[in-house]
């Protein structure tokens, strides 16, 4: 604006003229325009981009952790001895079966009683309600007669048979004859649990066998599995096979 205009405007009563204001605005149109462009670009793209970068970085960090876990799991699984695991699984399932083990245990205890010269006078299977820590229980009650040391040997043997049984109660009465004979009521607990139905998520860390598990597996491997899981039918005797070739 020429100086004469300013001087002229100052001379006017009432201060600044409309023309001067318009001229002032025109002078600032470029910086204001630039400011507006920057504000608009920041609002539409800038903030969105920065926000996106921050959330992407966060996701990348999560993915890195997840992938490292997956990699570790893959390495552990590919390095595991499949044959050893298979054998350990068989032994472990024999010790704690995945179906009711009462008949198997019953058979095992009867076999042991037979080998120890202990007479089984009576037996009872008692279903127990509920499950504790994922294990289901069945009770077995035996009425036995025999020499004290034979009964003790039977008790000792039941602790070494698979499936795992626990003695919950022992009641003994001496015969009073002085020959060491006793009649004993032994209550056992047998255990079973359903097999795990689902595999954990791929991202879940792999639980490997610790030293305690290995020690327990060694103990379980020592258990004797005396009874079969199925009843083998007796061979036919005294019958004539009608389909046999003459």
């Amino acid at each position: 604006m020429p100086i004469s205009n300013i001087v002229r405007d100052q001379k006017r009563p009432g201060g600044v003229s409309a023309g001067a204001i318009a001229y002032d605005w025109r002078r600032f149109i470029v910086p204001v325009g630039v400011f507006l462009v920057i504000t608009l670009l920041s609002a539409t793209f800038g903030f969105g981009l920065v926000k996106n970068i921050l959330s992407t970085v966060e996701r990348i960090d999560q993915l890195k952790v997840e992938n490292s876990g997956l990699q570790e799991k893959r390495d552990k699984l590919s390095g595991a001895d499949r044959n050893l695991l298979s054998r350990q699984a068989q032994v472990a399932v024999l010790a704690v079966p995945n179906q009711n083990s009462s008949l198997v245990s019953l058979s095992a205890i009867r076999n042991e009683a037979f080998t120890k010269n202990v007479q089984v006078v009576g037996l009872k299977v008692v279903e127990k309600e509920g499950a504790q820590k994922g294990v289901r229980e069945t009770g077995l009650e035996f009425e036995l007669e025999g020499k004290l040391f034979d009964v003790m040997a039977l008790i000792e043997a039941t602790n070494k048979t698979a499936p795992i049984v626990k003695i919950s109660k022992v009641r003994m009465l001496g015969s009073g004859t002085g020959d060491g004979s006793v009649s004993a009521d032994l209550s056992f607990q047998t255990f079973w649990a359903e097999a795990p139905k689902n595999l954990p998520a791929a991202t879940a860390p792999l639980e490997t066998l610790g030293a305690k598990d290995q020690q327990l597996l060694l103990e379980i491997e020592k258990l004797r599995f005396t009874a079969s899981r199925q009843v083998i039918p007796a061979t036919p005797a005294g019958r004539v096979n009608p389909f046999a070739e003459q």
Binding site: L85, V96, I164, L199, D213
Partner: peptide, 26 residues
Amino acid sequence: QINTLSPVEILLQTVKNRTSLAANIL
């Protein structure tokens, strides 16, 4: 790759599950 190794994971989980149950029992 982990899915292809799932049979090994099943075996491992079975052993782990049974040993923890046996530990609870004993």
